[in-house]
Computed example of a mutant assay.
Amino acid sequence: MTDNAATIEAIRRELADSYDEEFELELEDDRLESLEEGAAERKARGLDRKVYFRELLRLQHELVRLQDWVKSQNLRVVVLFEGRDSAGKGGAIKRITQRLNPRICRVAALPAPSERERTQWYFQRYVAHLPAAGEIVLFDRSWYNRSGVERVMGFCTENDVEEFFRSVPEFERMLVRSGIILVKYWFSITDEEQEFRFQMRIHDPLKQWKLSPMDVESRSRWEDYTRAKEEMLARTHIPEAPWWVVEAVDKKRARLNCISHLLEQIPYGEVPHPPVNLPDRVRHDDYIRHPVAPELYVPAKF
């Protein structure tokens, strides 16, 4: 094999390795689902693996093109991901960001507000995470916490909720008027599917941390969350920033549908890139690479 052919083959192997993370994530999902009753039936209903990976990689390529466009045009993009616990928001966000530049596309997943933040204007802590020119921000839960978990779990008053419903349309119209592209997704799952996914987390020691006491409590308040969601959609679905509902019982289809839809919300084109030519390595006769002390190396256990 010539040096050039060997280099190309090495690059091919490295590219294949770069896709391993996605395969590993899907294998993990398959392993967990196999622990539950009805696994064969669920798999039969699911999207064919080859189709899923082919379409996911195609869409991720388009996301890279979108990222280049956002950067070149100095756009500001905000995408909200809302839904019940275990609805698949995090999985969709992970697939969107997987191939993108974290300096351009970042995730905002805010913890519970601090004592100081509770005394601020409600939207203040979210405003700090809004994008600058050439950035995309994905909110893994957002200011809609007020109309969801905060309301259902009693962390705010009904007066607080009513004020939120009066304010949020104006707040979002202001964001859109300022030039921000705002897209809002609600991931929808059934009662049975949420129970199944919670059971998966209970049986997986690597994912038990995802099942918080709040999540457990939410199971007994399914109907309260439903009523809160319905009022939220009715009162905050505005022409400037409409809601989009993602059918999310099938996680693979939900991811593909969400990414495909997101790409359609932002018209983008090709951004020309000058060809990259690696310069020759500069060598100096007096350059000496000194050895590294053996005790500095990480033990080679594998």
Rank of each mutant, 00 (worst) to 15 (best):
V107W: 03
A40I: 07
E158R: 06
I266F: 01
L25H: 09
N145L: 03
M214I: 13
P242G: 11
P111V: 10
L233R: 08
L206C: 06
P275Q: 05
F196T: 12
M174F: 05
V70E: 05
H237C: 04
E230V: 12
E41N: 01
E264D: 15
P291F: 02
Y185Q: 05
A40Q: 09
Y122R: 02
R141Q: 09
H61E: 15
H203Q: 15
W209R: 12
V77S: 04
D160W: 01
K89E: 07
I202K: 09
K184M: 00
R95L: 04
D29V: 09
E264W: 00
K94Q: 14
E264M: 08
R99H: 15
F23L: 11
R118H: 07
V183T: 15
E270C: 02
L25W: 03
Y225S: 05
R12T: 14
G46R: 05
L263V: 11
D17V: 06
L100W: 03
L211T: 12
E158V: 10
A16I: 09
R65T: 10
F123I: 04
I288P: 00
I189A: 02
A87V: 02
Q120N: 07
I202V: 14
V77M: 06
V216M: 07
D286T: 13
E55N: 07
E115F: 03
E230N: 15
P274Y: 05
S34D: 13
T119K: 14
L138Q: 04
V282D: 04
V216Q: 14
H61Y: 12
E14M: 10
R146Q: 09
W69A: 08
L25C: 05
R42D: 09
G46L: 00
E170P: 00
E9G: 00
D215N: 10
L25E: 12
D29Y: 07
S212C: 11
A44E: 11
R49T: 10
C156N: 03
V246I: 14
P169N: 10
S260A: 14
E264P: 00
G83C: 08
S86G: 05
A234M: 10
T190P: 06
D204F: 04
P242N: 10
G46D: 14
R289L: 14
K94N: 13
S220W: 00
R201H: 06
E135W: 02
D250A: 10
D3S: 13
D140P: 04
E247P: 06
N257P: 00
R197F: 05
F53Y: 13
E230P: 06
A132G: 14
Y52P: 01
K94M: 07
L138W: 03
L278D: 08
E21N: 09
W69Y: 12
R281T: 14
V249R: 04
E24W: 00
M174G: 10
A128S: 13
V246T: 11
V77Y: 01
I96R: 01
R166I: 08
I202E: 12
Q265R: 15
V137L: 03
A87K: 03
D30Y: 10
N74R: 11
N159V: 09
N74H: 08
L25Q: 13
T97K: 05
G90A: 10
V51M: 02
I288V: 15
L278R: 12
A6M: 08
Q208V: 14
D191I: 00
D224E: 15
R42C: 00
R289S: 12
Y185A: 04
F196E: 06
L278F: 13
D140H: 05
L278P: 06
R125W: 02
E270M: 07
Q60H: 11
